[in-house]
Design a protein around this nucleic acid. Structure first.
Length: 417
RNA sequence: GGAGGGGUGGCGGAGCGGUCAAUCGCACCUGACUGUAAAUCAGGCGUCUUCGGACUACGAAGGUUCAAAUCCUUCUCCCUCCA
């Protein structure tokens, strides 16, 4: 409501907006024609995770409402390391690791954004293109002179680190300057007027807005999304195994589905708005379901979210796997599985080892504790002996042994082809 | 430059020669209850183990001692006060 532009209306209705440098100015700008906006992603891991999803959705909405989204890979800035929201300095990544990470991260974008030459076609950029070749003295004279140390010290990313008595190295101190420069550079190259990001990026983004104004009189805008927490206050995007990755290679579509399926009741509406493209009317209906009914809303959420990230087929398969596993208690073919050689199975493989190999536990000790604590099952049968050995005759009619750690984590042991 | 205080497990924070793999809280895992939810309750929570133990850990490196997270020395980082 209240906005002229479809983009801001959608974002505000769906709960994407935390702060904006100038709502009216941005609104007017968006009404004046096709604009371009970007979000930067540092290549600190081989895949993005659900924490990044909110900004990807923003870019996607930006495109859907007729504008041009830019995904900026931080090939250059990753070599420096963003101090925002971190207590410790990030270890410096080797350049080749960064290149590999970038390759992994790119996979996810194409699911959410369509790249191309048309006016609202997305652009994939990489700040290494301009940062890697910067001349230090020139950069200091052209860009550095616009930054006041006094102000930088008051920025949260810096201030918090200092207040918490954590060291802040000079290289990290420069991160903000480089990110600011990115914004100016993208405006020069593509006319980008808006940078979006998480609320922790507010300082960095605003400082880019200011740099653009000081250097060239550009009119730039900042828009941030709220920091996402679950209804019980935990930071979003963690599971037992760690981060919820977007790349299939790091987290199966089934596990991704399960992540959403296990959302807390109180989060369902919020997540539907943020992480699906379902209409607000439909979402209202879904979130009004009470009691056990709300499970239907969670299924829809998981299905839609998985569809966006892994495609229709993978989503249907994940939903079906979950249905079989949880609603029928059957062995679903498509559960995550590991392969074991027939010869090994005939000899017998300790359950502990299988649990570990299947990734259901992190160590032998943990496997033992799981078993002793009554949380381990083989073919749905509770196993209490931690020296239990699995053998080939446990293979079910599907040709697999089903392992379970707790009620929700399941894996199949299949015979290696 | 001077004087004090401090760096302990993912985080917070006890311990201050043996009974310390280290009280406790949070986070996390499992079980019960449920709706594959939340809340609650119970158990677990360094690695390995032939379940007897073994190994690695309390900023870093040395030393004293039968024995150190605990004492000594040096180094290092942080905080406070004085200059």
């Amino acid at each position: 409501m209240g906005y002229k532009s479809e983009f801001l209306n959608v974002l505000s209705d769906r709960g994407f907006i935390h702060q904006c440098s100038d709502f009216q100015g941005l609104d007017a700008k968006l009404m004046s024609g096709t604009q371009s906006a970007y979000v930067g992603y540092d290549a600190t891991a081989p895949s993005l995770h659900v924490g990044n999803l909110i900004s990807i959705m923003m870019l996607s909405w930006f495109q859907k409402t007729g504008h041009k989204p830019i995904t900026l890979m931080g090939g250059g800035t990753t070599r420096v390391g963003d101090p925002s929201g971190k207590d410790d300095q990030r270890k410096l990544l080797a350049t080749n690791a960064i290149a590999e990470n970038i390759a992994g991260i790119k996979q996810a974008f194409s699911k959410f954004i369509s790249y191309g030459q048309e006016p609202e076609g997305g652009i994939m950029s990489n700040n290494a293109a301009w940062l890697d070749t910067l001349n230090y003295i020139d950069f200091l004279r052209d860009v550095g002179k616009h930054f006041s140390i006094n102000r930088m010290l008051t920025m949260d990313s810096v201030k918090l680190r200092l207040e918490r008595e954590q060291p802040l190295s000079f290289i990290e101190f420069n991160y903000m300057i480089l990110q600011s420069y990115d914004f100016v550079e993208l405006h020069k190259r593509h006319g980008t007027i808006l940078q979006m990001g998480g609320s922790d990026q507010w300082g960095n983004i605003v400082s880019g807005v200011e740099l653009g104004r000081r250097m060239h009189g550009y009119e730039l805008f900042a828009l941030t999304a709220p920091l996402l927490t679950t209804a019980s206050g935990a930071k979003m995007g963690k599971t037992a195994q760690g981060a919820v990755w977007l790349n299939e290679a790091m987290l199966s579509a089934y596990d991704y589905y399960q992540f959403w399926r296990n959302s807390e009741d109180a989060d369902v509406g919020k997540f539907l708005r943020l992480f699906t493209f379902l209409s607000l009317d439909e979402i209202k209906k879904l979130e009004s379901l009470g009691g056990a009914e709300i499970n239907e809303a969670k299924k829809k959420l998981a299905e839609e979210a998985t569809r966006l990230c892994h495609g229709h087929e993978a989503a249907m398969m994940a939903a079906e796997t979950a249905r079989k596993t949880f609603e029928e208690g059957a062995v679903a073919e498509s559960l995550p599985s590991i392969a074991v050689a027939m010869t090994e199975l005939q000899k017998g493989v300790p359950l502990i080892q299988l649990l570990k190999d299947a990734g259901l536990v992190a160590s032998n000790g943990e496997a033992r504790r799981l078993i002793q604590g009554g949380g381990a099952r083989v073919n749905d049968q509770l196993i209490e002996n931690d020296n239990y050995v699995c053998t080939a005759d446990m293979l079910g009619s599907e040709g697999a042994i089903k392992l379970s750690a707790g009620k929700k984590k399941h894996a199949l042991i299949k015979v290696a082809a």
